[in-house]
């Protein structure tokens, strides 16, 4: 068996990399896949708390790399799923504790047992980012419909191409349909026009995401209880597995005044 390594990255911080990693790993595990989520954000570990596994950590990625434990010992099983594991980042070390070639070794070992290795990248374009893409088969770039996030995404796309790790795919997170329909937010079409890469996901702004993080229960686990973000993550999982899942129509509640003014445009 040879699993696929997927890196979730963005350039800019706070756009939703950890949220996407946690939910995508969850959604793929819910489809019966063997999945490991790997936190490459050394020194600023977060994937553990978003997945609700923070109290079960004994060993971390740096312990594996420095030979203090076997890889299996650092894989925390998420008991809510058949086969979902977390390899946490070290909290008290810095990015230089792991090298790109360490990442290749770790990922090659994981590939033999897992269907998917999903790597949560730190922000920035330095060592942590290099580590996160060292062994990647497929890069997912997360952005927000906002000028600085899109600009940083463009820079990352250029770097991924230069490293011959492309073509990268795009996830647009925190879309507010009402603002888009008022013309006060970049639309998905605008962002695709600008970045010229393939879209794999659109995630609306959704407070269920924060509620999920509060509880350590990724929103992708919420069945069909109305959270549109939950469906959005399951759709991305389907697309990554080659299904032709149509993009959800994000409906905006358009006010009478908005409609009136658009009549005159």
């Amino acid at each position: 068996m040879s699993g696929k390594v997927i890196t979730v990255t963005s350039g800019k911080g706070g756009v939703g990399k950890t949220t996407v990693t946690a939910n995508l790993a969850t959604a793929l595990a819910m489809r019966g896949r063997k999945v490991v989520a790997l936190d490459a954000d050394i020194g600023l570990r977060n994937l553990d708390i978003v997945l609700g596994l923070e109290n079960r950590i004994v060993y971390d990625l740096v312990d594996v790399v420095e030979g203090r434990c076997r890889l299996r010992q650092a894989m925390i099983k998420d008991k809510r799923h058949q086969e979902l594991y977390l390899i946490p980042a070290a909290q008290t070390r810095d990015k230089s504790a792991v090298s790109p070639s360490d990442m290749v070794l770790v990922c090659n070992e994981l590939r033999q047992e897992m269907d998917y290795i999903i790597i949560d990248s730190p922000a920035g374009i330095e060592r942590g980012f290099r580590n996160a893409i060292a062994a990647t088969d497929h890069v997912l770039i997360v952005t927000n419909p906002e000028v600085s996030a899109v600009r940083d995404a463009d820079r990352i796309i250029g770097l991924i191409e230069a490293e011959e790790k492309g073509p990268a795919c795009l996830i647009v997170n925190r879309v507010k349909p009402a603002m888009v329909s008022r013309g006060e937010m970049l639309s998905i079409e605008d962002i695709i026009d600008i970045l010229a890469i393939q879209l794999v996901g659109v995630i609306p702004e959704d407070e269920h995401i924060l509620i999920g993080s509060n509880q350590g229960t990724p929103v992708a686990m919420n069945g069909s209880n109305g959270a549109s973000a939950s469906q959005a993550f399951r759709n991305i999982a389907g697309r990554l597995e080659g299904e032709d899942v149509p993009f959800m129509e994000l409906k905006a509640k358009i006010s009478f005044l908005d409609r009136l003014s658009s009549l005159f445009n």
């Binding site: 000028v147 899109v150 600009r151 463009d154 250029g158 603002m179 013309g183 600008i194 003014s261 005159f264």
Partner: peptide, 24 residues
Amino acid sequence: LLGREEKSGATAKKRLQMVLIHDR
């Protein structure tokens, strides 16, 4: 009154296209 002012979404797109020419 008729909402003919350029919306900020369109401004954002134009500005990004310009800045990315130089970035790239």
